[in-house]
């Protein structure tokens, strides 16, 4: 396999592409009129992340990161809950995970395939500020910090230069 004509993944996944995917995901999943606004605000002290892995010609993950309170508010919006109904940890894992899943599936389609998508995972390990983020959008939803990042898998053979081999 030659990688001499490899296209950097940063070119395939420019900020505009990731934003346009978020623009379609938010109204559909989070609610009518909702939007992910690409304007950074102060990052939260404590964070929760949900992510899906992509494995194929390129290996990595699509990660959604925000404060636990933002994750709960997102979940309430996705599940359309009304007071006094409260969301629990399982709901948050489910809703945040599905957001990461839908973002991830659409981001995967932009990359040369075929690739496989992992099932959504959720955790507190903050993947913020990693050097191998290939695309990272710090933004906000309803004024709260929210980050979408696409990260190359460390140590994976094809991703050392974050390039995707052409077919």
């Amino acid at each position: 396999m030659t990688t001499s004509h490899a296209q950097p993944i940063t070119e395939l996944l420019d900020a505009e592409t990731v934003q346009s995917i978020a623009d379609e995901v938010w109204p559909s999943l989070v609610g009518d009129g909702e939007a992910f606004v690409p304007l950074p605000v102060a990052p939260p002290a404590e964070v929760v992340s949900a992510w899906v892995t992509i494995s194929g010609p390129w290996n990595g993950a699509v990660v959604l990161t925000c404060a636990p309170a933002t994750a709960e508010a997102l979940t309430e919006s996705v599940l359309m809950t009304r007071p006094p109904t409260v969301v629990d940890a399982e709901d948050v894992a489910d809703a945040l995970g599905e957001l990461a899943n839908v973002l991830g599936g659409n981001i995967k389609s932009v990359l040369p395939g075929p690739s496989a998508l992992g099932l959504p995972r959720i955790g507190t390990a903050p993947p913020t500020g990693r050097l191998d983020d290939v695309r990272r959008i710090d933004g906000q939803w309803r004024g709260q910090s929210l980050t979408i990042s696409v990260q190359g898998a460390t140590g994976a053979p094809h991703t050392e230069r974050n390039e995707v081999p052409q077919q």
């Binding site: 999943l29 979940t75 489910d94 809703a95 599905e98």
Partner: peptide
Amino acid sequence: DSRAMRRI
């Protein structure tokens, strides 16, 4: 597998 998506 997502309860949120089943709901939507």
